[in-house]
Design a protein around this nucleic acid. Structure first.
Length: 394
DNA sequence: TTCTCAGGGCCATCG
DNA sequence: CGATGGCCCTGAGAA
């Protein structure tokens, strides 16, 4: 096989650390893990782990425990639906644009690293390669490896998600064979893949966009130092994911009658919230705040992050001049960036600020919804989000 | 029309 | 004898 993106091949397989051979089933992996994943899905194999389902998977030990290896394949983001149920050879799948974008992103990051002389914490490629060695909590909850579609395997509350994040209508796969028959299949509009395997293993959907940055990031000259610093502080998505998976593994506490999907979503939201607070804590501005203000930021981490990015309401802080100053610096950096990278779109800066307003409105709606749930005694206990909302109400 | 490259198949090797 | 993994073939989509 010929590659025009040799630099990608310098990377290591997120599953076993071997050399990657290209994009396979959603992300850059080695040939070995590609084959292993293919055989497992095509042959509907079910493995068991003789240890504690947390075996280390690396190049030398990947053959020891296929259960943990496959779990890791799913955890890092390999896609079951990319394995063709009809076994048609050749062609491209619906991930093509995703691969292309991921590749462009890598090029940009490398160019940025070269231009700036230091390495940013990179986000995951299309999937999420974890830093070797893998922590034990990369493993999915045992229930997620059920041979039957139950629990999370039945999909999120709104139904199975399409690859673009929108709920897709489930459809029965015509001609489904063997033990796979009767499963629900996500609907894909593309014709390259006429049918896909179901998700009896139900890999968790990646939190947020599958890329390190929410939009194509143009590095190199013209990127203000402040933006580079903020990007460096971005939470490591691998760690966030590992923490969420670990959290989901914990047995449910509190409300046994809690609907599983909602409870799980609350847990995931909690972990995301913790990451945001961590981000706020590590911000250079935060380190300059007074202790009392820091406690406030801890409590209102999410709002603080929004504020630092250009929103209002920093009145609750003692030292609001410092925060205000940081906010203005962030705005100035963003303005510089948009002027440099979107010279033909004069109002890019204003457009981005308007997006923040919309995000803020959505945030308010979500808060109201959660608070309504809380008043109806429908929230899980020990929920950080609701504690934050309660604190804000008082 | 040609090229690219990701998914599938084949098969030698290994345990 | 089944699993593994490297290599090659195929063919849809991009150029």
């Amino acid at each position: 096989m010929e590659y025009s993106y040799d630099e990608d091949l310098d990377e290591l397989c997120p599953v076993c650390g071997d050399k990657v051979s290209g994009y396979h089933y959603g992300l850059l992996t080695c040939e070995s893990c590609k084959g292993f994943f293919k055989r497992t899905v095509q042959n509907n194999k079910h493995y068991t782990c003789t240890e504690s389902q947390s075996c280390k998977i690396d190049k030398t030990q990947r053959k020891r425990c296929p259960f943990c290896r496959f779990q890791k394949c799913l955890t890092v983001g390999m896609r079951l639906e990319a394995v063709r149920a009809d076994r048609m050879r050749g062609g491209r799948n619906k991930f093509g644009p995703m691969y292309k974008r991921d590749r462009a992103l890598k090029q940009q990051k490398k160019a940025q690293i070269r231009a700036n002389g230091f390495k940013l914490e990179t986000g995951p490629p299309v999937g999420v390669p974890p830093p070797p060695p893998p922590p034990p909590d990369y493993m999915l909850p045992p229930g997620l490896h059920a041979p039957e579609p139950k629990g999370l395997a039945s999909g999120p509350p709104a139904g199975p998600l399409s690859d673009f994040g929108a709920p897709a209508l489930p459809m029965a796969m015509p001609g489904a064979h063997g033990p796979l028959a009767g499963y629900l299949y996500p609907a894909f509009p593309g014709r390259a893949i006429k049918s896909e395997y179901p998700e009896p293993y139900a890999s968790p959907p990646p939190p947020g966009p599958p890329y390190g940055y929410p939009e194509p990031f143009s590095g190199g000259p013209g990127v203000p130092e402040l933006i580079l610093q903020l990007l460096q502080l971005e939470p490591d998505e691998d760690q966030v994911r590992a923490r969420i998976v670990g959290c989901l593994q914990e047995p449910a506490k509190g409300r046994p009658d809690q609907p599983a999907p909602f409870g799980l979503l609350c847990r995931m939201a909690d972990q995301t919230f913790i990451s945001i607070v961590d981000w706020a804590r590590r911000c250079m501005v935060f380190k300059e705040l007074e202790t009392r203000d820091r406690a406030e930021v801890d409590e209102f981490g999410q709002d603080e992050r929004e504020d630092l990015l250009g929103l209002e309401d920093v009145k609750f802080l003692n030292n609001h001049s410092l925060v205000k100053d940081a906010q203005e610096k962030a705005n100035a950096a963003l303005l510089d960036y948009t002027l440099c990278h979107y010279p033909h779109c004069g109002d890019k800066f204003q457009q981005l600020l308007l997006c923040l307003v919309e995000v803020r409105a959505l945030s308010m709606q979500a808060k109201e919804y959660l608070y309504h749930k809380h008043l109806g005694n429908e929230m899980p206990r020990n929920n950080l989000l609701i504690e934050m909302l309660q604190a804000k109400q008082t």
